[in-house]
Nucleic acid binder design. Structure first.
Lengths: 260, 260
DNA sequence: CCGAGAACTTGATCTACATCAAGGCTGCAT
DNA sequence: ATGCAGCCTTGATGTAGATCAAGTTCTCGG
């Protein structure tokens, strides 16, 4: 699905927040609760005002297209709520999800004229959209922001290398164990309440998405999760949550130890 | 070698070039023949002098460790000649090569205290080494250089995503076809002589390396290359070279078309 | 020019995961 | 509450690529 676009094609204004440039709007970045876990952390008060001025907030329902593969690369996004999936496809429909961007993560960076990947919301998502010229101005005006983006992209590259190791060399069991632990860590960072959420993993995506992320089929993902449940390594929790019962064992499996 | 080497013969293989800060040393970056295909391209004449001053040239034989997984991340490198492999390993020895850095490519960027990956020369390699503090100074002093690095890392991330698609969703046949075409493109960029090198691919790495890069075994790589040769899509050439006989067919295979 | 180890190829067999198939949940629209 | 559509699970079977096992061909030191 592409997101509802009342008038013109480009600013896909499914849910742009009413754009009166009020105090509230200028303050948006200042009061942003996940700021300290994102790029924007590198900004001082003046910079935050510039950020708010340079961006618009989008509120999007699940399964909304944010970026279409091959479209002109016009914007850059920062996720402030929910989870976005990034992917690449082959002509016959095979798809690889290259990553999930949770709150605090950016997406949409490209040096090419067009995006080489697609992006779609997994659940209810809020993001800040920066059009490319504005982003470039910000980078030039705020060196610490640029340094921060460089660091963030460098981290993404390291993540990508880790995922290549998973895709190329891990077994199905190891892949799923790695995924569940990663989702637990992601939940840690996102969740506000500490305690008792310590061993919860947030899994808002479907089996299809998990399979396309791990280079498996949905059946294999399902069977592997069932096996972990049978072995009491995990248990179901409410909603799209999974409780990790044995982090240590799962970590052993994830890292390729033969241990049980 | 292509550019005139003014006075002293090139330093002996296996070590750091004698570090007399002579004109020659200051000029190193100015006369670098692959400069225009690397990060350094963004530098003006003054910047190039600073680059030369901030770096040392290393000349290394094949199978030399450049970066050890888990070691402190002290340096950043720019490859000026030859090919370097980057990889990650599992405790039991399984290995994933995450990329090959040919002349003009950088490696060694990390925001963490330690490297999360290893790097080793494939053939005879020359590289420029920047210690981290010097690199950071350069980034701060030369904004165009920093912007250029940001663009380069962004490109690497796009490459990594492409490789994830390959690892997660392509067949052995598609993987090998993609690899051969990529090596052809890499040779294009690296080779000085044009013409008749148009369809040559440089493959300095072993079957083990290719297998670890594509998430296959050496036997499967060997069989697949043999099949391509049998089908007259490729032919052996001198050294570690492969001639691509049908770029179009190989490209079809690489992109997942069912075409023959 | 020779010999030995490393790198590569090819064949036979095995297996982890894919594919095919059938139900069973779950949530929401009526 | 009921039905249905999307999502998930589980089982039976198939297969691409792994593993096991010989050779064969490079490569390079002496």
């Amino acid at each position: 699905m592409t997101f509802p676009s009342p008038t013109s094609a480009l600013p896909p204004v499914g849910g742009v927040v009413p754009a009166s440039k009020t105090d509230l709007d200028v303050m948006r970045c200042l009061v942003c609760d996940i700021r300290n876990r994102s790029l924007c952390n590198s900004m001082d008060e003046e910079g935050l005002a510039a950020l708010a001025h340079s961006s618009r907030q989008l509120i999007l329902p699940p399964s909304t297209t944010i970026i279409e593969e091959g479209e002109p690369a016009l914007a850059f996004f920062n996720v402030t709520r929910g989870t976005v999936k990034l992917f690449k496809s082959l002509p016959d429909g095979r798809r690889q999800i290259t990553g999930f961007a949770d709150a605090g993560q950016f997406l949409g960076l490209s040096t090419a004229q067009t995006y080489s990947f697609g992006a779609e919301t997994v659940d209810n998502v809020r993001l800040c959209r920066f059009m490319r010229p504005q982003l470039e101005t910000l980078l030039s005006d705020y060196p610490t922001f640029e340094r921060s983006l460089l660091a963030a992209v460098t981290d993404k590259l390291a993540e990508a290398q880790e995922q290549m190791l998973l895709l190329g060399r891990k077994t199905a069991r190891e892949k799923v164990a790695t995924f569940l632990l990663d989702r637990m860590k992601a939940f840690h960072l996102t969740a506000n309440r500490r305690q008792e959420a310590e061993t919860l993993a947030s899994v808002p995506m479907t089996r299809v998405d998990i399979a396309d992320y791990l280079g498996l089929t949905i059946e294999t993902v399902s069977r592997t999760i069932s096996a972990f449940r049978r072995d009491h390594l995990i248990a179901s929790a409410e909603n799209h949550r999974i409780r990790i019962l044995s982090v240590a064992t799962l970590a052993n499996i994830a890292s390729g130890q033969k241990a049980e």
